[in-house]
Amino acid sequence: MIWLDTLVQGILLGGLYALFAAGLSLVFGIMRLVNLAHGDLIVMAAYLILLLVTLLGLSPFVAAAIAAPLMYLIGWGLQKHLLNRTLGTDILPPLLVTFGLSIALQNALLEGFSADSQRLPTGEISTASVDLGVMTVGVLPLLTFGSAVAVIVGLNQLFYRTELGRAFRATSDDPTTASLMGIRPSDIFAKATAIAMLVVTLAALYLGMRSNFDPNIGPARLIYAFQAVIIGGLGSLWGTLAGGIIIGLAQTIGAAINPEWQILAGHVAFLIVLLLRPRGLFPRAFD
């Protein structure tokens, strides 16, 4: 039974990693931009939620609902005024600029909130669990996983069922020809990053409720997210969920064998998948 429990915990943890990764995957899929500040943006959103919780006395869920549109606007402006300028044939400028942004965000958060570790107040929900007969599962991990699946389903619907999604795919294929259709690629990219920031807010909510955070934990979240995206296959949203689950499973199984192996096991799983499937589990047919 202990093994079943470990497996379920691993899968549920994968939901959190998939949430970290979904925004990264969306942005990479549309504009081939690797945002090295993605983890720090999650941490920034967690502080924004914390601020709303402490200042207005809101529940984290309500605070996240208020933070989401703010993060949307921040994402839009960030892409429109900064990141769009870095996009081109050279892959180096976006990496350098987002790396710089990552450091700037960490320092700004350090200035504003100190290095103390924080946590979002959760009330009963952090200890609540449901009894599944053979085992009990925490409500918060379940909620995280459900949110991850909902985000992936929602983003897929957006991608494949809406006019904006069509424009996302067309711009990703060929921005010049897309502009001949009346699409302005820089607007499409701004919308994509804005939507990614909605997912980032959700990721921040669960990150902040499930563990402590401080201004410096962004890069580590970025690595899990990055691994999930690569394992899944660049640009595939379902792949990203699968990638998150594989990292989550590897970490919990590793930790069950030896608590010190948790992080290492995740990285090893990542390397094994890369060795066997260099383009990830669900690569795009063309590229």
Binding site: E163, R169, D173, D174, T177, G182, I183
Partner: peptide, 24 residues
């Protein structure tokens, strides 16, 4: 414009390629 070399969008179906001509 019908660009040289056709330049259809590979991730769009035939109908989606047509529909994108009226984007927005």
């Amino acid at each position: 414009m019908v660009p040289e070399g056709r330049r259809l969008f590979p991730s769009l179906s035939v109908e989606e390629n047509l529909l994108i001509g009226t984007y927005g």
